[in-house]
Structures are given as structure tokens and as C-alpha cells.
Design a protein around this nucleic acid. Structure first.
Length: 304
RNA sequence: GCCGAGAUAGCUCAGCUGGUAGAGCGAAGGACUGAAAAUCCUUGCGUCCCCGGUUCAAUUCCGGGUCUCGGCA
């Protein structure tokens, strides 16, 4: 019986301290890091996407950071293909893939796979101009199972479900049943890092302040000058600072909004990760050094 | 000091002519299969500033008090 190859995940909310812990762990177990982040893939986005510090990236190999331009559309499917290739590559070199990040859907797609139903921009664009009520009625007619799962107000998912049905003739709820990911294929361990909510929020606010000091406004001014893709334009910080640049409000207002939207994001991240029972949680101490956390993880890895 | 306005949910405020109150924001919880740092759903008993009066009944009317804001001094 051949042992399955290892794949380790470190997930958790923004600002919990994942990057430093992952780098410390990678050095202890001969691993390379694969980013699990929907925005750090964009090469022009530096400060806004809060990428791992240059020092960390010099110490440990990081994959799936800076892989596309903000001018390009990106997607989970594309992420999954790139990540799967990176995992195979790292294994081939005898090292351990350490997947680290806070994008819940990206994690899920790696663990459990995704169904084969490519996006169809033409069908999608057509759907977006249609009447919302008629759209939902159509979904209830062609795919009642999906309609039961999707709220009438959730335009995004309704459009996607109909897009899949119209372009393939098969309901999305049927197609979604066929998928497979790393879970079962590799020896997967998933660790979640957490901190008390209040402490997490304080760290978020401090980090936003740091980002402004590091030149966030100038960077965003540059990004906004580019023909951004619809996905690249979603980074928290872009719309908020755009309001400053076009004179709608001042920098303090932008800071407030970025902090607020990041806190909301943290909350959604926690909702996502908490529901996945495969995640083994570690509560971090207020002053706990990354190396200490990494040692705790090494112990847990032995205990499997 | 005088005149005026106001004091209602963590914040900003709604509450026709009396029957113990509701929105937005925030906050908390949840969903999530090719846009996901996105998109969406759920949750509001709070001394209606205090004291007294009128009334079957007052957040709502009357009197007094306290505080806040604006104007005049």
C-alpha cells in the first residue's frame, strides 16, 4: 500500500498572521507555499492585496502570486488548474505543498473539486439584461433543485445557474454533483488559525493604517489608470480610494470604508471556514511568534 | 442671561390630530461549485432625558427641571 502524498492547508481570516506562520512552517518541514488568495494572483496589486513580505518570499518559494495581470479575468477554475499543477510540481521535487490563504471558495474547490461547466460570457451578458423576476421564474422551471438553494435576490447565482443550463442543456444542480478534489487523493491536513474577534479587528485596522503609510493611495491611483478586468477591480481598497481620487470624500472616509469592508470580509471568511469540519483550529496567543505556532503545527502533524 | 430648536435601538434619525415604537447604518449569525476581497439571507423590549399633572390610557398634551445645539447679548 503506497502512502498518499501530503498536502497541508493553512487557512484563516485576513490579518490573523497566516503568511509568517506558513513561511516558518515551510522551513521546518521542507515545504513550498501555494497561495490560496483570489487577489494576490494579480501582479500589479502589491500593497492593496497584502502579499507576503519580500523577506518571506526570499526565504521560501511562493507559488500562485503575481501570475496574472489585473487586466485579465481570473476565476476559481483557473486557480484550481494552476494550483493542481503547482502541487504536482512540488511533489515531483520531493517537497511538501503548503497551501495558505483566506479565500474560502478557492480552498473548497481544491479540496472537493469543481464541475466542468465553463463560463459563457455571451450567455451571461444576455442574462444580465433580462428581467429579474422572469429570470428566477425560468430557474424554477428548468432547475427547481437549484432554485430551492438560491435566494430570489441572489442575482449572481441565478445568472450563473441559467448560464450553465442554457449553454449546456443540463441543470447546474445536476452537474454540481460530479466533482473530485484533493480530499481523498492526497494525505490532506487542514489547519485554521484564529484569534479573538476583537483582536482580529484591531489587527485589521492597524494593517490598513500600515497600507496607507506604505503608499496605498499612489498604488491604487496607478491601478485605476489601467483597463481593469471585472475580477481585478474587486480588490478591497480600489473602489474606496477611487472615491477620494474623484473628490467624493476624504482619505479618512476611505480608511473607514476599507476597515469596515475588511471586517465584513473577515466575518464571511470565518463563516466559511467554521462550517468545514475538516479544519483543525489553533487559537493564537496575542504575542505568539510565528515560529512557535509553526512548532505547534509540527506537533499536530506528527500526531496524525 | 434672553430667544428658538432638540433630547427615541451602539450611531443618524422617523414616529398624522394620545392606545407603551420603526427605518438606515453598525453589530451578530448564516448561505456559498468557473466574478468569491464577490453575491445573497436572517436577527431590533429599547428607563421613547427626569419629576409632576390632565386622561380609562402619554413617547405623543400641559407645567417644571436637567442637558445639547443654534441665534442674540
Amino acid at each position: 500500500m503506497t502512502a498518499r502524498l501530503p498536502v497541508i492547508f493553512i487557512v484563516g481570516p485576513t490579518a490573523v498572521g497566516k503568511s509568517a506562520v506558513a513561511a516558518a512552517l515551510a522551513e521546518k518541514i521542507n515545504a513550498e507555499i501555494i497561495s490560496c488568495d483570489a487577489m494576490q494572483v494579480y501582479r500589479e496589486a502589491g500593497i492593496v492585496s497584502d502579499k507576503p513580505a519580500p523577506l518571506l518570499r526570499a526565504r521560501v518559494a511562493h507559488h500562485l502570486i503575481d501570475v496574472v495581470s489585473v487586466k485579465e479575468e481570473f476565476s476559481v477554475a483557473r486557480y484550481r488548474a494552476l494550483a493542481a499543477a503547482a502541487v504536482a510540481d512540488i511533489h515531483a521535487r520531493g517537497k511538501v505543498p503548503l497551501i495558505t490563504g483566506g479565500s474560502g471558495m478557492y480552498m473548497m474547490v481544491l479540496l472537493d473539486g469543481i464541475f466542468e461547466g465553463a463560463a459563457d460570457p455571451v450567455v451571461r451578458a444576455a442574462l444580465e439584461t433580462e428581467d429579474p423576476a422572469a429570470r428566477y421564474a425560468e430557474l424554477m422551471r428548468v432547475d427547481p433543485a437549484a432554485a430551492a438553494m438560491i435566494k430570489p435576490g441572489d442575482t449572481r447565482r441565478i445568472v450563473r445557474a441559467l448560464e450553465v443550463f442554457r449553454s449546456t442543456g443540463v441543470p447546474i444542480s445536476v452537474q454540481q454533483k460530479t466533482r473530485a478534489g484533493f480530499w481523498g487523493q492526497y494525505d490532506v491536513r487542514v489547519f485554521g488559525l484564529e484569534r479573538p474577534r476583537a483582536e482580529l479587528y484591531r489587527r485589521v485596522e492597524a494593517r490598513v493604517e500600515d497600507m496607507f503609510r506604505a503608499g496605498l493611495v499612489a498604488e491604487v491611483r496607478f491601478l485605476l489608470s489601467l483597463p481593469l478586468s471585472s475580477t481585478g477591480a474587486r480588490i478591497i481598497g480600489l473602489p474606496e480610494i477611487k472615491g477620494v481620487l474623484d473628490g467624493s470624500y476624504d482619505v479618512d472616509r476611505a480608511k473607514y470604508l476599507i476597515k469596515l469592508h475588511t471586517r465584513h470580509y473577515v466575518k464571511r471568511q470565518m463563516t466559511w471556514f467554521r462550517k468545514d469540519k475538516r479544519v483543525a483550529w489553533l487559537m493564537l496567543g496575542p504575542q505568539e511568534a510565528p515560529g512557535v505556532t509553526a512548532d505547534r503545527l509540527v506537533e499536530k502533524l506528527k500526531g496524525s
